[in-house]
Simulated scan of single mutants.
Amino acid sequence: MTDIFDAIQRTAKRIKKAIDVKDIGYSQQANSSGETQLQLDIQCDMIIEEEFSQVPSIHTIASEEKEKEVLLCETGKYFIAYDPLDGSSLVDVNLSVGSIFGIYEGAFEAKKMVASCYVVFGPRVEMVFAHNKTKLHLLQGEDFVFVKEIRLNNKGNINAPGGTQQNWEPYHKEMVDNFFAEGYRLRYSGGMVPDLHQILLKGGGLFSYPNTSDRPKGKLRKLFEVFPFAFAFKKAGGEATDGEFDLMELECFGIHETSQCFFGSKYEIKKVREVYANNR
C-alpha cells in the first residue's frame, strides 16, 4: 500500500503544476458520460496512468475519463478507480478542485475496497487518505506531512445539496429545507471534493446528491466517487447511504455505474434514512 500512497503523492504534485497554466481550454473529446473534456482532464488522466504504471502492485486501473479498464500488471493485486480532476470546470474561476482514488483488492467491488484517497487543490494542497483511519496530510514544499486524524461529530451544521432543485422529489426538498430550518448553513461549490472535504474538516453535516427527474439513477459514479468517499466517511466515524442501504453494501455492475448518495454525520444520515423509508 505504501507504493500506491507514494504514487498518489507524485501525481498530486504533478497535477498541481498542470493546473497552474494559462490555457485550460476544451478539447474535441468527450468522456464516458458524453461530457466535453478539458485539456486539463486529459492531462491529469495521463499523469495518473503514468505514475500508476510504475507500481507493480497495481493490477488494473479505471478512470472516469476512460471508457474501459486498463490492465497494468498481471501479477498486481490492487484495482484502482479514479477521477483525475473532479470539478475541473471550476478551475477557470479559481475554485477548489480535486482528485479521487478508490483502492480495491482483487476486483472493483465495494466490499473489496481497502483504502481510499482524495486530494484537494485549493489555496493549499491537502490529501486525505483513509485506510484504518482517515488522515489529513498537507503539501509543504515537495513533501506531504501528516496533520491529524479526521473524526466527525455526531451532528454537524453544514448542508451541501447537489442537483438542480426543480428536478428534486418534493420530499427531498422538504428534507433539505428542514435541515436549513434547524440552522444548517448552505455550503455548495459544485465540486464534490471541496464540499465533502469541508464537511469532514468542520466536523459534520450532510452532502446529498439524490436521484432526480433528469438523472433517475443519480449522477455520481460508484467506483470513482461514491465508494471512495463512503469509505473515508465511515472510517472517520460518519455514515453513507443511498437512502436505504449503506453505500458500501451496494453492488456495481459496470465501471461507470451511478447511484444517489448521502454522506454525513450519524445524525444527518439517520434523518435521511427516515425520510426515504417513508417515501419508497
Rank of each mutant, 00 (worst) to 15 (best):
K16V: 07
K266C: 08
I8K: 00
S89T: 04
K234T: 00
D41C: 11
Q140Y: 05
K13R: 10
P228V: 02
P161E: 05
Q37D: 07
E274W: 01
L40T: 12
N278S: 13
V226T: 07
K133Y: 03
H172V: 12
H59A: 12
Y26E: 09
Q37Y: 01
K68A: 10
G98E: 13
V120R: 15
G190Q: 12
F129L: 06
G106S: 11
K270L: 09
I100F: 09
E35M: 12
D23A: 06
Y118N: 01
N153E: 09
Q198E: 12
T241P: 07
K235I: 00
L223H: 03
E35H: 02
L38D: 09
S53T: 15
G237E: 01
S208D: 02
Q198F: 09
F231A: 00
G205K: 05
K202T: 14
P210Y: 03
N159C: 15
S88V: 10
C44T: 09
T60F: 05
D83M: 07
V193T: 04
K270P: 03
M127Q: 15
E50K: 09
M248Y: 01
R273K: 14
Q37V: 14
A160F: 02
I4H: 00
S33W: 07
P123C: 05
Y171R: 10
L223F: 02
D41T: 08
R221P: 02
N279D: 08
I19V: 09
F262K: 05
I47D: 10
Y276K: 02
I15V: 10
G190E: 14
L201R: 08
T60Q: 15
E239S: 12
K148Y: 04
K155Y: 04
I47N: 13
T212W: 06
A12F: 02
D143V: 04
V272A: 03
K111M: 12
L40K: 12
R187M: 11
D92W: 01
Q140V: 13
G205E: 05
A230Y: 06
Y104S: 02
D83V: 06
F179M: 03
L250Y: 00
F5A: 05
R215V: 01
H197Y: 13
V147F: 13
K219L: 11
K271V: 07
Y26F: 15
H256Q: 07
